[in-house]
Simulated assay, not measured.
Amino acid sequence: MNKEDQNYHVSVLYQEALEALHIKPDGIYVDCTFGGGGHSRGILKQLNENGRLIAFDQDADAQRNLPEDKRMVFIPQNFKYLQKFLRLYRFPKVDGLLADLGVSSHQFDEADRGFSIRFDGPLDMRMDKRLEITAATLLTNLSEKELVEMFSHYGEVSNAKTLAKHIVANRSVSALANIDAFKNFIAPVVKGNPNKYLAQVFQALRIEVNDELGALKEMLVQLPEVLNESGRAAIITFHSLEDRLVKTFFKQGTFEIEEEHPFLNSTRQNPLINITKKPIVPSERELKENKRSRSAKLRIAEMK
């Protein structure tokens, strides 16, 4: 396990992700989610003076962890703008790309970010503070139908309809003032294990606030355009919605479901080779050392 970024975030599947990239000393690589910089430092260690690393992170806090290294370019933006900024910095093609889609430990542990049910703080949840919409904004303005869709799809909340109805019927500024107030506000409709239930609700809000699945899809469709021949993409997901998108795109090269026709052969060619038929998961040792790694799945694809 990498120790360098532990105060900010422990890099999940550290060795496995680096090995997946097949790093060439003079290659060009992208870390889509710089965070604490653990994976980035691991890549830099394997590059010579001609190698380059382009790191993205939309969270301004991540910039505290930047190493002084002339081989690295840091881009303070969402990775959905991957191709745009690679072109801007004159890196039209790269040899590998890594994305760790988990929320960093730092973000969970900072009360004022609003990601965790453990602390009181504002109902924020923005990865990028430049965004205008917060979790409180969504809870205040979304319709009952939109709330149902968000909680059921992004959080798999079992009683999403009841929760949405309760919010719309009773929401007020005071009820959404902060995390503790919100937890008390929805307490009458919490179903099952309260911590699990709240975690699902918070996950749904966080995904919606940051358009996490939309950004992931936008990044994935750019891979065939930015990867060199034999270039690799290694993506670590933390819940089934993300994993399903990555699995589908690596397998098909598209998100569209192609209907089988008995008399026609498909002409669609997947530009990617799906390396991982089954995802790589943390070892028993990593699970013991870092409980937050338990839901991590690493998938790898290679450009033909």
Rank of each mutant, 00 (worst) to 15 (best):
F250W: 03
F74N: 11
R244Q: 10
L298F: 03
F185K: 04
L53K: 04
E260T: 13
E242H: 02
N178C: 13
I133L: 10
K278I: 06
P67W: 12
T134F: 00
P67F: 14
A55V: 03
Q222T: 02
V190T: 13
L163D: 06
Q252F: 09
N228W: 00
A233Q: 01
P271K: 12
M1Q: 10
I133R: 08
H22Q: 13
V73L: 12
M219L: 14
Y154F: 14
G36K: 11
K129D: 00
I43H: 07
R118W: 01
M1G: 14
V209K: 04
N274I: 01
V226Q: 07
L53Y: 04
R130T: 03
V281H: 07
L223Y: 00
R118G: 02
R130L: 00
Y154L: 07
I236L: 10
G214C: 08
L220E: 06
G192F: 00
Q46G: 02
N50R: 06
E208F: 03
L245S: 13
M1I: 09
G27F: 04
I75Q: 01
E225F: 02
A99R: 01
Q252S: 15
C32G: 15
R171D: 12
E259P: 02
N48Q: 05
T276I: 12
R118C: 03
F182T: 11
K45Q: 14
V221D: 10
V168C: 13
L138C: 06
A215V: 02
P271F: 13
E146F: 00
A60Q: 10
L98R: 00
A181F: 04
I117A: 08
L53S: 06
Q203T: 05
Y8M: 13
Y197W: 04
I300R: 06
D124M: 07
R126S: 03
T140D: 10
F79R: 05
H166T: 01
T254A: 12
E212S: 02
M1S: 13
M1Y: 08
N184E: 14
V209G: 10
L142E: 08
R52H: 11
E149Y: 01
D57H: 04
L18S: 11
F119V: 05
D5R: 14
I23S: 11
L53E: 07
R171F: 04
M150G: 02
I117C: 04
R52F: 05
A199H: 07
K24A: 11
Q63W: 06
N78P: 00
F79K: 06
N7T: 14
H153A: 08
R244F: 02
A160S: 13
E19Y: 09
V173E: 15
L272V: 01
P122G: 04
E284Y: 08
K297N: 11
E259R: 11
R130Q: 04
H166M: 05
F238H: 06
I75T: 05
L198Q: 04
S158K: 12
I236W: 00
K165Q: 10
D57C: 07
